Simulated scan of single mutants.
Amino acid sequence: MIKLEDVSVLYNKKVLAVDNISLNIDKGEFVGIIGLSGSGKSSLLKTVNLLVKPSNGRIYVEGTNIGLLKDKKLRNIRRKIGFIFQDYNLVDRSSVLENVLVGRLGYKSSLKSFFGLFDDEDYKVAVNALEQVGLKEKVFSRADELSGGQKQRVAIAKTLCQKPKIILADEPVSSLDVSSAQTVMDYFKKINEKSQITIMINLHDVSLAKKYCSRIIALKHGKIFFDKKVGDIDDDQLQELYQ
């Protein structure tokens, strides 16, 4: 599903955020990425859909080298890759439904996208997405009336509207309380298991990564420190990672 070959990310021609990383992610995997702040987690995640362009290396999605794509072909690939941000990335003054419908824009012509024109199928997909994250009753609420956990679930619903094959989530629960964080992670797990959507998620909480992910990639100084199934990770490795 995702393949990275010798990928590096260099900022301002001098700061090496990702250092020559190669890895494969299979369809349906739930992969957690952990490490200290500044270890390259966000940069690595954002290279997968070219939100951050690598200074070196190749990125393949379903066998296609996406670094060679332009315009419509690149947009079509990005439509398959949902991205969820730490800060929800919602329009507070708009309704929950209006925020979720943004996920349908990749299926619209430029003119329809500009005017935000949606049809009955779009509304059906949006409401179904909200139902998948337990927020159907909030469809007409304003986004700024929601709790942090509810906002992140709206962000997940917006991503589901893309009908993605891959979801990338960058510290989606780091600003939430323990209960809300677990609720959001529960929905990620359900989506992964029910729809076989491949998930790569950056997490600052190792216990959440071990509870929900099947595989954990640890980064240190921009390099892969370890890449293991959850059951193969020991406390000594984690202690060394966070020293």
Rank of each mutant, 00 (worst) to 15 (best):
L51Q: 11
G67F: 03
R75P: 06
R78T: 06
D87G: 02
I21V: 15
K41N: 04
I77S: 03
S55E: 03
G103K: 11
G57K: 01
V96M: 00
N99L: 04
S55H: 08
K70C: 04
I33S: 01
V52F: 10
V96S: 00
N56D: 14
V96K: 00
R58H: 12
V100N: 02
L23G: 00
L68W: 01
V52M: 09
L51E: 12
L36H: 15
N12M: 03
L50T: 11
V100P: 05
I33C: 04
I21E: 00
V18W: 00
Y88I: 04
V91R: 09
K72G: 02
G38P: 09
D71L: 07
T64I: 15
L101R: 10
L74W: 07
I66D: 01
F83D: 02
I77R: 01
S55W: 06
G106E: 08
I34T: 05
Y88N: 11
S43M: 10
D92V: 05
K13Y: 15
G82Q: 05
F83I: 12
K41I: 04
G106C: 05
D19V: 10
D26Q: 13
F30L: 08
G38A: 12
G63T: 02
L68P: 07
R78N: 13
R75S: 15
D26S: 14
I25A: 01
K41A: 07
N76A: 13
N65K: 01
D19Y: 12
F85Y: 11
N99R: 03
G32K: 01
V15T: 15
V15P: 03
F85W: 04
K14M: 07
N76S: 15
K72A: 04
L105C: 11
S43T: 14
N24I: 12
N76H: 14
L36K: 15
L90P: 07
R104E: 05
I81L: 09
K46T: 13
L101T: 02
Y60D: 07
L105S: 09
G28P: 04
E62Y: 10
N49V: 06
N12E: 12
R75M: 10
S43C: 12
V61E: 03
I21Q: 01
T64C: 08
S39F: 05
I21K: 01
L51R: 08
V15F: 15
N99W: 08
R79K: 12
K72D: 09
L69T: 03
G63P: 06
P54I: 12
N65D: 15
E98G: 04
N24W: 06
T47W: 07
V102F: 14
S22L: 11
S37D: 09
K41R: 08
G82H: 07
V96Y: 01
G82R: 05
D92S: 15
V91K: 10
F85S: 14
Q86L: 09
V52N: 14
G63F: 05
S55T: 13
V15Q: 09
S39Y: 08
F83M: 14
